[in-house]
């Protein structure tokens, strides 16, 4: 075990902030967790003994990484396209 691992795929600059990245990476997770949680909390229903909003938050453990992964891909593809743009 070393301080550094074998991966070298992350020695890149951080992409500039863009509106689509902020919407998918920040706005959507907040809407999913808070919006979804509040909506289900109002229903006062349970599934297998657990309140629905808690089940929903558990589901968000998968949905939030999915949002961040899409955001990562958006940034990567935007930079790839920028790199391919011919210099005039």
């Amino acid at each position: 075990m070393h301080d550094q691992d074998g991966r070298n795929d992350t020695m890149q600059a951080v992409p500039a902030l863009s509106l689509p990245a902020l919407v998918v990476g920040l706005g959507l997770p907040y809407c999913l967790v808070i919006g979804g949680g509040l909506a289900l909390r109002a229903q006062e229903m349970t599934l297998f003994g657990a309140p629905l909003e808690i089940i929903w938050i558990f589901a968000c453990f998968i949905l939030v990484p999915a949002c961040l992964y899409i955001c990562w891909r958006l940034s990567s593809s935007a930079r790839f396209n920028a790199d391919r743009k011919p210099v005039e």
Partner: peptide
């Protein structure tokens, strides 16, 4: 909720 949402905040 707060732990989960700290990850998107930290991402940026």
């Amino acid at each position: 909720g707060y732990i989960l949402l700290s990850y998107p905040v930290g991402y940026f």
